[in-house]
Design a protein around this nucleic acid. Structure first.
Length: 332
DNA sequence: CGGCTTTGACCAGCGC
DNA sequence: GCGCTGGTCAAAGCCG
C-alpha cells in the first residue's frame, strides 16, 4: 500500500495503489530528425523526377512541423506529470495531517468520541455505503478506548469499519463476512437504542480480532461493524467467504476479510495508472500498436492520462463528494 | 456433549 | 467519591 488506508474509509474512496510516478518510464525523447517514408522512397533513385527538390522542401517543412508537435506534446506530458506530482503531494500531505490528528485524539474526550462515533462517522463518510479498509496508521476512538492494553498494542491495533445495509425486519446483528465469530457480549449504549453486540474471532483460538456490530441510530437498516486487530490466521477459503457474504454482501478489507462485491451506494473511485485503459487495451489488442517513440503514441499517452481522469463519470462527483464531506466533517 | 448465545455482573475510565 | 458508561467475563440455557 502506498497510501494510508484510512483514506478508503475517510474519503469513501477505494484507491488502488498507484505506481509511483518515478517508476513510470520517462517520456520518450523527442524524435530524432528523420525522413518520413513516402512513395518516393521506394522509387528507383535513377528515376527521380526533377520535381523531387520541391518535394524535399515540403518534406523538410513537414518534418519541422512534426518535430514542433513532438516538442509540444512532450511539454504537455511533462506539465501533466508535474501537475500530477503536485496533486499527489497535496494528497499525501493531507493524509499525513489527518493521520496525525487521528493518532492523537484528545484523551479527555475518549468516551464521548466513542459514544456517537460510529454513527457520526457513518453519516460523514459512508452513509448508506459499505466502507472497507483498515484504518492503519489512524487510531480511532475505539482504539483509544482499550486503555488497559499496552501502548504498543494499541498502536498496532488496526481498526476497520464497514457498513452493511440489511432488511429492517432482520433483527439480527450478524455480519457475515466469512470468518467465524463468537458473541461474548451485548450492550445497549447510550446514544443508540439498538444494542451493540461484541464478537471475538473464533476461527483461530489465538486470533485477537474483535468485532462490534450495532445498528445505526439514524438508519436502522444499516449495520455498523467495527473490526479491531488483525487476523493472525489465513483468510477463510473462498467458498466459505462466498457463502458467508452471500446474504449481506458484506466483507471488509485489511484486517477483515477481503471482498470485491461490496454493497456500496457511495462513490467508489479506482485510480489505477498502472493498468492500461480500455482504449489502450483496444489499441494493443485490436489495432496496430503505435511505436513508443512516435508522436502519435505520445499524443495518445497524454490523451489517455487526461481522459482517464476527466472521462471517468464517477471521478469528479466522487472527488467533490469526498472533499465536501471531509470539509463538512472538519467544520464540526 | 460441545459449541454457541444470552444476560446479568463486574471492572475501569471519565466527568462532576 | 459517586454515578454513568463502555467493555468484558462467565454461568446458564439452547441447539444440533
Amino acid at each position: 500500500m502506498d497510501h494510508p488506508s484510512w483514506i478508503n474509509t475517510s474519503l469513501g474512496l477505494n484507491i488502488v495503489p498507484l505506481r509511483p510516478l518515478d517508476d513510470l518510464p520517462p517520456p520518450p525523447p523527442p524524435l530524432p530528425p528523420k525522413q518520413e517514408m513516402s512513395e518516393n522512397d521506394f522509387m528507383d533513385l535513377g528515376t527521380i523526377p526533377s520535381s523531387v527538390k520541391d518535394e524535399s522542401g515540403a518534406l523538410a517543412e513537414e518534418l519541422n512541423r512534426v518535430s514542433a508537435e513532438n516538442k509540444k506534446l512532450t511539454e504537455m506530458l511533462a506539465l501533466m506529470c508535474e501537475n500530477y506530482n503536485a496533486l499527489r503531494n497535496q494528497v499525501i500531505e493531507y493524509m499525513a495531517k489527518n493521520a496525525e490528528k487521528e493518532a492523537h485524539p484528545s484523551p479527555s474526550k475518549k468516551r464521548k468520541c466513542e459514544g456517537g462515533g460510529v454513527n457520526h462517522e457513518n453519516n460523514h463518510y459512508n452513509h448508506g455505503a459499505v466502507s472497507r479498509g483498515s484504518t492503519e496508521g489512524s487510531s480511532t476512538d475505539e482504539e483509544s478506548s482499550k486503555v488497559t492494553q499496552p501502548r504498543e498494542e494499541k498502536i498496532a491495533a488496526k481498526i476497520s469499519r464497514i457498513y452493511v445495509r440489511t432488511e429492517v425486519s432482520d433483527a439480527g446483528l450478524t455480519v457475515k463476512d466469512g470468518y467465524q465469530w463468537r458473541k461474548y457480549g451485548q450492550k445497549v449504549t447510550r446514544d443508540n437504542p439498538c444494542p451493540r453486540a461484541y464478537f471475538k474471532c473464533s476461527f483461530a483460538p489465538s486470533c485477537p480480532v474483535k468485532k462490534k456490530v450495532q445498528r445505526s441510530a439514524d438508519d436502522q437498516a444499516l449495520l455498523v461493524a467495527t473490526y479491531e486487530g488483525e487476523h493472525n490466521h489465513p483468510s477463510p477459503s473462498p467458498a466459505d467467504e462466498a457463502s458467508g457474504s452471500g446474504s449481506n454482501k458484506c466483507t471488509t478489507n485489511g484486517s477483515a476479510p477481503r471482498s470485491s462485491s461490496l454493497n456500496t451506494s457511495g462513490p467508489t473511485v479506482t485510480l489505477d495508472l498502472t493498468k492500461p485503459s480500455k482504449a489502450a487495451t483496444n489499441i494493443t489488442k485490436d489495432g496496430p500498436r503505435p511505436k513508443a517513440d512516435s508522436p502519435r503514441f505520445q499524443r495518445f499517452l497524454v490523451e489517455q492520462m487526461a481522459s482517464s481522469l476527466s472521462n471517468d463519470p464517477g471521478f469528479t462527483s466522487a472527488l467533490a463528494a469526498a472533499i465536501s464531506g471531509k470539509i463538512f466533517q472538519q467544520k464540526k
